[in-house]
Nucleic acid binder design. Structure first.
Lengths: 166, 166
DNA sequence: GGAAAACATTTTAGGCTTCAAGCATCATGG
DNA sequence: CCATGATGCTTGAAGCCTAAAATGTTTTCC
C-alpha cells in the first residue's frame, strides 16, 4: 500500500486482512517449497530423476492408451514446448515411446514402455512414503481441516483469477 | 503403493492417512502453484519482471546497508551461482549496484540504486494488492485457521527432514 | 477443389536453477 | 614468511520453463 495516499483512501484499499493475506501467502509458499525441495532432493538421490519427469510419468500411468503432448501439456499446466523437451529425454531413457496417430498425422501419442511402468512404480511407491513421512506430524483432525481450507482457498483463488480475466 | 504386494503387507506400509497425506500434499501444491503462476504472470505483464528478481529486490530493500551474494543466497535459499546470474541482470537494468568490500576483497555488497528502490516500491505495492485480491475470498476465521495449520505443518516437515538427515 | 483458418507439435531465444569446478582472497599454523 | 586450507564468488554444463515463431496437417467454407 502506497505511503503517499491519505488514510481514508488507504482504508478503502486496505481493509483488515490486507497484510494478513500477504503473511498467509508467504507461509503457504514457504511450506510448499520446503516439502517440494525435499522431494526433489530425494528423487534425485534415490532415482536420479526430477519432479517434472516424475509428474510426466504419473500422467501417462493414469492414461491407459497414452496421451498426446497437448493433453499432457494441459494436465501438467505447462507449455507445449516444455513437454517436447521432457518427452525427448524420457524417450532417450527408454521410459516412454512415441507413436504417430494414424487418423491425425499432426499428433503423436506418448505412452509408458514396460520399463517405464516398472520404474514409475518404484518411484511412486517411495514418493508416497516420503509424503506420509513429511506430513506424518499432523493429526487426523488437522489434516482434514487443512484439506478443507486449502480447497476453499483454491476455489476462491480460481474465482478471483477468472474474475480478473473477465 | 505397489499393486503387487498383498493386502497385509500393504497395511504395514499404509497406515491410516498414508493416502490422505498424498492428497493433502497435492492439494497444497496445486493451490500454491495456482497463486504463484498468477503472480508471475502479473509481474511479467505489469512490470516486465520475474518472481526471483522481485524476491531479490525485496531482500535488498530490507537490508539498509546492502547484502553480499552469499547472504542473499542463504536468505533466498538458492545456490550462489543463481545469485550471480540474477545480480548480473539486475545490475544491467540499473536496479542494483555492486561495491567491492574494502576489508575483504573477495566479497562484494549489493544494494538498491535509487531507481531500484523506486521500482521495487511500485512492484511491492501491486504485489500486496494482488495477494489480497486472490485470497480475499477467505473469511477472517479461515485465514487465521489456515495460518495456524500451515505453521504447524511447516514445523512438522522441518522436524521430519532433520530427523531423516540425522 | 482450393484458399484460409484452425490445430498439434516443434523450434528458438532467453531466463531460472542446480551442481561441480575454478579463481581469487583471506586466515592459520608451522 | 609462506604453504595450506577455508571462504566468497563466478563460470560452465545441463535441465526446466516460457513466449513466440515456424512447420506440417487438418478442417472449413466458399
Amino acid at each position: 500500500m502506497s505511503l503517499h495516499i491519505d488514510a481514508e483512501t488507504a482504508l478503502d484499499h486496505a481493509p483488515a486482512g490486507h497484510k494478513d493475506d500477504l503473511r498467509l501467502w508467504l507461509r503457504m509458499l514457504s511450506c510448499a517449497r520446503l516439502i517440494e525441495a525435499e522431494i526433489r532432493r530425494r528423487l534425485r538421490t534415490n532415482f536420479d530423476t526430477t519432479l517434472p519427469r516424475f509428474d510426466f510419468l504419473a500422467q501417462l500411468e493414469r492414461a491407459e492408451d497414452g496421451l498426446t503432448p497437448g493433453e499432457i501439456s494441459r494436465r501438467m499446466m505447462v507449455t507445449g514446448g516444455n513437454v517436447t523437451g521432457l518427452a525427448a529425454r524420457l524417450e532417450e531413457e527408454g521410459l516412454i515411446e512415441r507413436r504417430v496417430v494414424e487418423q491425425d498425422r499432426r499428433a503423436v501419442t506418448l505412452r509408458l514402455t514396460p520399463q517405464g511402468r516398472r520404474e514409475f512404480a518404484r518411484q511412486t511407491e517411495a514418493h508416497e512414503d516420503w509424503v506420509a513421512e513429511l506430513l506424518g506430524g499432523l493429526s487426523a483432525t488437522d489434516r482434514a481441516a487443512l484439506l478443507r481450507l486449502l480447497d476453499r482457498t483454491r476455489r476462491g483463488v480460481r474465482a478471483a483469477i477468472s474474475e480478473a480475466g473477465a
